[in-house]
Amino acid sequence: MTPRRNALTPESLAMMDTIARTGSFAAAARELGKVPSALTYSVRQLEDALDVLLFDRRSRQARLTAAGEELLAEGRRLLAEMDAVANRVRRVACGWETQLTIAADGLVSRLTLLELCEAFYGLRPDGLEGGPGTRLRLRTEVLNGTWEALVTGQADLAIGVPMDAATSAGIDVRPLGEVNFVFAVAPHHPLAQVAEPLDDADIVRHRAIAVADSAQRLAPLTVNLLPGQDVLTVPSMQAKIEAQLRGLGCGFVPEPLVRDHLRLGRLVPREVRRQRQKGRFAYAWRSAALGSPRKAPQGLALRWWLEQLESPATRAALMDRFPAGAVPSAVD
């Protein structure tokens, strides 16, 4: 370790902060419980180690040089980071994860999800300043991508996985809710004028709008596409709805996300001969190491989120609560 690095101790940085804050060596010495000469000696040692002048000796006040200002600013940042590290270490020791990653399907209400984040950040665990301190990371996935993020370890909690997703050892799955899907087109789309109910022969002649499955390793899901049908593939449900509003194609869309568009006539629901679509979704988390019969220790942050998901009202809001005229956009 270099002499310069040895000189930059938490004590020396705190000393600089105290001198700058109090405005004089004498006031800083009183606050630190030192005699002024000892404080002056400590400052000279720091200046010698860094080979710079930190204070303008021509002034009776403790006036910082440009180098001193830089050291003060960076020193305050380093002290804050040291405190943050110490707090995070203590939180981890108390059972709070350093980071919790949540993968949510594009159908999940971001309004409700962010309100849950707000409640989480407002927690005040006993003895821990500034809340739990767990860093939350939200990911937007589609279809099998939500499940893949969980089983590959990229997420700790998956919200909105297909209810019929393949089970895996060490994964707990609970029902989240159902979403009604409606076949809809723009008012100027040709299918808006075809007699109902529409059959597959009517639909296959028109382009479908499909959302790409975000899975990279698992087999992607294909839903409600007819053999030989032209397809425009888009990256999100938001893009799918926008495409259908423009008349670029047709397809099934989640009723809660297009409720306002249907009410205002921007989209027209059409009865189809095939069975009415309903999606069943779940939430899942890793509960044990793969191949191990023992339960993995569950962090307090994940435990809190699972407790919220036990509420029927919360689950319903995640599936059905969207601002008027809005559809969820990507978070990550």
Rank of each mutant, 00 (worst) to 15 (best):
T2S: 15
R5I: 08
A14D: 07
I19V: 13
A20T: 01
A20C: 04
A27W: 01
G33R: 05
G33W: 02
Y41Q: 14
V43G: 06
R44C: 03
R44N: 05
E47G: 06
D48H: 01
D48M: 06
D51C: 11
L53F: 11
F55M: 11
A62Q: 03
G75V: 03
G75R: 11
R76Q: 13
R77C: 03
A84M: 13
R88C: 04
V89A: 12
V89L: 14
R90D: 08
T98S: 14
A104P: 10
D105E: 03
T112A: 11
L114H: 10
E118R: 13
Y121G: 10
G122S: 02
R124C: 09
R124Q: 15
L136S: 06
L143S: 06
A149Y: 01
A149Q: 06
G153A: 02
D156E: 11
L157K: 00
V161Q: 00
M163S: 15
A165D: 06
A166N: 11
V173G: 09
V173H: 09
N180L: 15
H189L: 04
V194G: 01
P197T: 00
D202R: 01
A210Q: 11
A215W: 03
N224L: 13
P227D: 05
G228A: 03
P235F: 05
R246L: 14
F252K: 04
P256F: 01
P256R: 03
L267C: 05
P269D: 07
E271K: 13
R274V: 06
F281Y: 14
G291M: 04
R294A: 14
P297W: 02
E307D: 12
A316L: 14
D320G: 05
D320P: 00
A324C: 08
V327H: 10
D332R: 10
